[in-house]
Design a protein around this nucleic acid. Structure first.
Lengths: 184, 184
DNA sequence: CCGCCGGGAGAACGGAAGTTCTCTCGGCGG
DNA sequence: CCGCCGAGAGAACTTCCGTTCTCCCGGCGG
């Protein structure tokens, strides 16, 4: 097993555990058991749990960005591309182990204690906002529309996580459609 | 000092600490120091930390509900009453120690570990949804509008918390206005 | 065949935190 | 005045967990 393999295994295992149970509820022992990599090797790759958390967030960011990109790429119509974001959310929400946005969860838990985590979360959200802004610009919408659409996406995530109703994505999509039509 | 006094002091202190730092980052010793009530008395009122967390959430729920009610009561025009929700958010976001929705934070941290906490958060959000639905009904809006407006409020909270820009409330309010006008 | 070394298993260490216990004091009823 | 009880101060106990260490094996170069 190569070093890269090990790194990926560790991050994938930690992601599953952190996301599923909450970061503070997961000990490094659990990461070892889930990944099959010894504590010694884990600590060689990630000098502290915080470093592992940051790696997990980076991994999640890549996955999320990929997912949105793929959904958006399914069409070329600028308006449909904007709405595709909510289609992606709908798919995500209906996954069996959906538990809200991992970044928001991490922020609520560690944002006050770890500046690095807080910064990673901020950057993730800023990146999403930039993406939405770009799609809005391509659709010829006003700059004020970007924040509104991003807020809808955020709200859908927490609503779906807490009340467990995946239809939040439909409501958000509907609202987005209204906002877009009213702005164009 | 009466028993009620003590209970309130404990809950108020715990609320400040839990909300400001995250629940897991606050020890019972810190609650003792902040409240000035001995551990023995704290544990007489609240048999476990989880019980204290639930009391804090109940307290927060009452505060939040009061705040929304007061903002809504400032006007009688049904449409303005709906928008007043976002005015309340704007005030809240600009408070110095705003750190997002305490319920969402608690849910991300403990939702998977504590069913009681998860249930309290769900009930809080459901209660807010009912409130919004009622306001929508009074304004003569369609049932589909309630969830959309609630999602906007949720999204504004996490957006404001993470990116630290209180203007999220303005964006949400703007979006809400558009949705309302388009639905009536 | 032999030694080296990367990695796993798991014990060990140190600190933090939830919970309980002991001791003490001050007020209040008899 | 005396004893009792509620409450605070703070130590003690236990468990958990982040982190490190020790021991051992198995493969790989000489």
């Amino acid at each position: 097993m190569t070093t890269e393999d090990r790194r990926e295994r560790i991050v994938a295992a930690a992601d599953r555990l952190f996301y599923g149970r909450g970061i503070g509820q997961v000990g490094m022992d659990a990461v070892r058991d889930e990944s099959g990599v010894s504590l010694k090797s884990i600590y060689r790759e990630f000098p502290s749990k915080e470093d592992l958390v940051l790696a997990v967030l980076a991994h999640r960011h890549a996955m999320w960005t990929d997912g949105v990109d793929r959904a958006v790429a399914r069409t070329t119509d600028p308006r449909e591309r904007l709405l595709a974001v909510y289609d992606f959310l709908a798919e995500w929400f209906s996954e069996r182990d959906f538990r809200g946005c991992g970044f928001i969860n991490a922020f609520g838990e560690l944002g006050a204690a770890s500046q690095r985590v807080a910064e990673a979360v901020r950057e993730h959200k800023a990146s999403f906002q930039r993406h939405v802004d770009r799609l809005v610009a391509e659709a010829g919408g006003p700059a004020s529309l970007g924040p509104q659409l991003a807020i809808l996406a955020e709200g859908a995530q927490t609503t779906a996580a807490i009340s467990g109703n995946a239809e939040a994505a439909e409501s958000a999509r509907e609202a987005a459609r209204t906002l877009i039509e009213s702005a164009l």
